[in-house]
Amino acid sequence: MSGGAERRLPGHYLKAREMYSLPGLVEYRPVARYLFSAGQAQSRFLDGLKEGRILGKRCPRCGRVYVPPRSYCEYCMAPTSDWVELPGTGEVHTAVVSYISTFRERMEKPEIVAVIKLDAPGYTEGGYEFAGLFHKLCNIEPEDVMSGRAIGMRVKPRWRPPEERKGDVNDIECFEPIES
C-alpha cells in the first residue's frame, strides 16, 4: 500500500447548517463557576499593588528576583524568603496591537498589550529570564509598535487613584512611557 498518503481518507465534513439540523444533535450549556486562590506570595503582591508598590521575592540561594513573586525558587527548590520592592520602571520587551476581544469580536479602539521587563536592582539575570509583567500600554500609538520604536522603550506604571484600587492586577491602569 502506498503508505496511505494517496488514498481517500475517512471522515465526514459538515457545513454549519448541516450540523445544526442533524437529528440526535445534543446541545449542553456548562455551568461551572470557580473561585481561584491567589496563594501566599501572590496575595501579598496584590496587597502591594493596592498600596501602589510592586513587590518581588528573592531566592536566598541564587539571587533570582521573581515578579510576579513565587513562594519557592523553581531552580533551587528553596523557599524565597526575602521580599524586595521594585522601582516599577522597566522596558518594553515586546508589544502588539489587538483589534479583537477575548471572544474574537472586532474592537473599535485597538488595545496595546506588552510584556514589560522590570528593573530589578541587584538581580543579575542571565539574559533569558527576567522579572516582568504582562500588561497594557497607554499613551503610545499603534504606529510606534509597528515601527518598532515601542520596543525597548522605558516605561513606568500608571496607578489608579488609591480609592479605586481593589488589590488586583488592574490597580495598574497600564504602563506608560517615561517622559524624557
Partner: peptide
C-alpha cells in the same frame, strides 16, 4: 523551615471565574 508561616499575607485573595463556553454542541456521529 516554616516559610509558610513567615509569608502569611494579610489575607489570601480569591478571584472568581467561570467557564467561558456558551454551550457545547455534540454531533451524534
Amino acid at each position: 523551615m516554616s516559610w509558610w508561616k513567615e509569608n502569611v499575607a494579610s489575607r489570601i485573595r480569591h478571584y472568581p471565574g467561570k467557564m467561558e463556553v456558551e454551550k457545547y454542541v455534540y454531533t451524534p456521529g
